[in-house]
Structures are given as structure tokens and as C-alpha cells.
């Protein structure tokens, strides 16, 4: 299994717990970094005064849309605007299946859009498929060279 990390941007701790359980139940043991709002996610990806940006980017970002402070769409925009993270795989994982959100998400460069099912069995299936696809099957572009 790929050792790449997963960045889970999710404010709801229940959802965090359920997502982790779903991933684990399918033996996806990659490191999961949880950002509880948009600011945390951006801080992690681009670094802050106290802590520099990580040298290795996550293999995939699971991004909720409805977030405190900075919402998911804005986070996506920032990711795509930066040269370093421009090609980073981002999967929108959210409760809504509003057409508007789907269109906006893809327009801003999301690689996938997945609605979280209420049925936990279904949810687990979806998480497994996501892990399989993005962590195992998908080939990521080579990381850009540092300055």
C-alpha cells in the first residue's frame, strides 16, 4: 500500500470518526491528517510562521464543503492557485448533492465529487472505493522540484 498521506478536511468529528473507521475497515492504513476547518487545511498545506509546509504533499485531499472560517470551495481555489499544489488530487466529499456545488467544484478543478451516503454500509463502500482508487490505482504527477 502506498505510504502517501490523506488530508481529511472535515469539521464534524462524527464524520471524521466514521470516515476513519470506514477507511480502516478496508485496511487503508495510510496516515490521515485531519484539518477541522479551511484555515487549518491551508496552514497545513502552505505552512505558517511556527511550522513550515510539509516537504511531501498528501496523496489525496478529502474536502468537505461546509466548513467554518474558510469554506471548502475557497480551499480548493487556493490549492489550485498555488504552483506547488496545482496538481494535487482533491476529492470533494460532502453531504450535499446540490447541482450548484457539483458544477462549482469541478469548475474550480476538483478531481472528483462524492456524496456521503446516510447509509453507513454504503458510506463504507464509498470510502473503500475512494481509497482503492486514489491511493492505489491513481498515478500522481511527480512532485515539483523545490527551489
Amino acid at each position: 500500500m502506498n505510504a502517501g498521506k490523506i488530508l481529511l478536511v472535515e469539521d464534524n468529528p462524527d464524520d471524521v470518526a466514521l470516515t476513519m473507521r470506514a477507511l480502516k475497515s478496508h485496511n487503508i492504513t495510510n496516515d490521515v491528517i485531519v484539518a477541522q476547518d479551511g484555515v487549518e487545511a491551508i496552514d497545513y498545506l502552505f505552512g505558517t510562521k511556527g511550522r513550515p509546509a510539509p516537504t511531501d504533499l498528501p496523496a489525496v485531499v478529502l474536502l468537505d464543503l461546509k466548513l467554518p472560517k474558510i469554506n471548502g470551495m475557497e480551499v480548493l481555489q487556493r490549492i489550485r492557485a498555488d504552483e506547488r499544489t496545482r496538481l494535487l488530487p482533491v476529492v470533494i466529499l460532502t453531504s450535499s448533492d446540490e447541482e450548484r456545488d457539483i458544477i462549482d467544484g469541478y469548475s474550480l478543478g476538483a478531481n472528483s465529487y462524492v456524496r456521503k451516503p446516510v447509509d453507513f454500509v454504503e458510506f463504507t463502500k464509498a470510502a473503500q472505493q475512494l481509497g482503492l482508487y486514489w491511493l492505489l490505482m491513481n498515478r500522481t504527477p511527480p512532485p515539483p522540484r523545490g527551489p
Partner: peptide, 14 residues
């Protein structure tokens, strides 16, 4: 769409 389904998911999930 966003907020009403999240608790349901928790209920079902847990």
C-alpha cells in the same frame, strides 16, 4: 442539504 443529513449519517453510522 448539508446539515440535515449529517446527523442522520451519524445516527446510521454509529
Amino acid at each position: 442539504s448539508h446539515d440535515l443529513r449529517a446527523p442522520l449519517r451519524s445516527i446510521d453510522g454509529f
